[in-house]
């Protein structure tokens, strides 16, 4: 057990670190084009995101939804499924949570909040189960259906918040959720909430489920080789739907966190690509709960620092989005290396 734990990290840790370093070098080139020193720009970024308790709390706050979407994408990845639909699941989950939040008023918090969170998970799970089902039943690749479902979710929620559920104003958003359905702040004035604990719990649950239960074993077996798993008596269709649904529930939690912890209402198209960033987080975190938390904190830090960098230097904050894209690219391109290590290390 310990042996194995010692053998894997070298390759597993080195590759993401290299990807991030390479991305920072590419980013330096962009910083140089505006005539700033990469060193001082990155320093401003780090100071803002890690230099104070308040900054660190903001980093964690921005990392929280990414932990959920990272876990979501990773969970599906482990089953050999690519859930590129986390963004859509996030929106459906968010709307479900918001709906429970502003509809069932008058409930005590101890009932209302869990109910809203549950609704968010169910909304995401249902949305993700559809491409899972279409894959299991008809063999249609989940990627294309997930992409289609993303857009259907955008337009569906666009309609919901500009039509039947628009709040009293002309703004495309719902009513505010009741206070009894909101997540408590941990460190005011920062917006870090108890959602962070839910994210840690979700990571722990994923670990337990994936490596300590029969379901997790079957999911990983399907992920490694569906044909062999089928011969081994595993119901691949059932596992496919289950893995997608759980993945969707996690993505739904990301949306839920944005509603009940941050915005307190559903705002049209509120997500800054959190679902797609989940792909980056999952890959960088090597589809492992611990790695995902660390990767999410890194991206949270980049986003927290971006605003300060924008303010204090002439580097536009979009540098961070560029970095995020480049990081994914390098993580993707080192797949050959990791696959090689995996086949030597784990098999």
């Amino acid at each position: 057990m310990l042996d194995k734990a010692k053998r894997i990290p070298v390759a597993v840790v080195l590759a993401p670190v290299l990807a991030v370093l390479l991305a920072l070098i590419v980013g330096s080139a962009f910083i140089l084009t505006v005539g700033e020193s990469p060193f001082s720009a990155y320093k401003v970024l780090l100071q803002e995101s890690f230099g104070s308790m308040r900054g660190f709390a903001t980093t964690l706050q921005r990392a929280t939804p990414l932990m959920f979407t990272g876990l979501a994408v990773a969970f599906a990845f482990r089953a050999g499924l690519f859930n590129i639909g986390a963004e859509g699941q996030l929106y459906i989950g968010a709307f479900a949570a918001a709906w429970v939040g502003f509809t069932f008023t008058g409930l005590p918090k101890i009932i209302h909040l869990p109910l809203a969170v549950m609704a968010g998970m169910i909304g995401g799970a249902i949305w993700a189960a559809v491409p899972g089902l279409l894959k299991a039943k008809f063999g249609i690749h989940e990627v294309i259906n997930s992409i289609m479902m993303n857009y259907i979710a955008y337009f569906l929620t666009d309609w919901l918040v500009t039509g039947p559920f628009q709040g009293s104003t002309m703004i495309p958003e719902t009513k505010r959720v009741a206070a009894s359905a909101t997540l408590s702040r941990l460190m005011p004035p920062t917006r870090l909430t108890t959602a962070l604990y839910i994210a840690f719990a979700a990571a722990a649950v994923m670990y337990f489920l994936m490596w300590r239960t029969k379901l997790g074993y079957e999911i990983r077996a399907v992920g490694l080789n569906p044909t062999a798993a089928e011969y081994g008596g595993i119901n691949v269709a059932k596992i496919t739907v289950a893995a997608m649904a759980i993945s969707g529930a996690l993505a739904g939690l990301a949306g839920t966190e944005q509603i009940l912890g941050l915005n307190n209402r559903f705002i049209q198209r509120f997500s800054p690509d959190l679902g797609f960033m989940g792909v980056a987080v999952a890959l960088l975190g090597k589809n492992h709960p611990v790695g995902i938390i660390l990767a999410a904190v890194l991206f949270g830090a980049l986003q927290t620092g971006a605003a300060a960098m924008d303010r204090l230097t002439s580097v536009p904050r979009e540098l961070i989005t560029i970095l995020q894209g480049v990081i994914i690219f390098f993580v993707a391109a080192e797949y050959l290396f990791t696959r090689f290590m995996k086949s030597k290390g784990e098999a």
């Binding site: 690519f82 590129i84 990627v143 690509d273 797609f276 960033m277 792909v279 980056a280 890959l283 989005t321 560029i322 995020q324 894209g325 480049v326 994914i328 690219f329 993580v331 993707a332 391109a333 080192e334 797949y335 050959l336």
Partner: peptide, 15 residues
């Protein structure tokens, strides 16, 4: 580099 093509595409979209 035999990267996952969906991942590479996603990277390009974000980038």
């Amino acid at each position: 580099y035999r990267a996952n093509q969906v991942v590479s595409g996603t990277a390009i979209n974000i980038f």
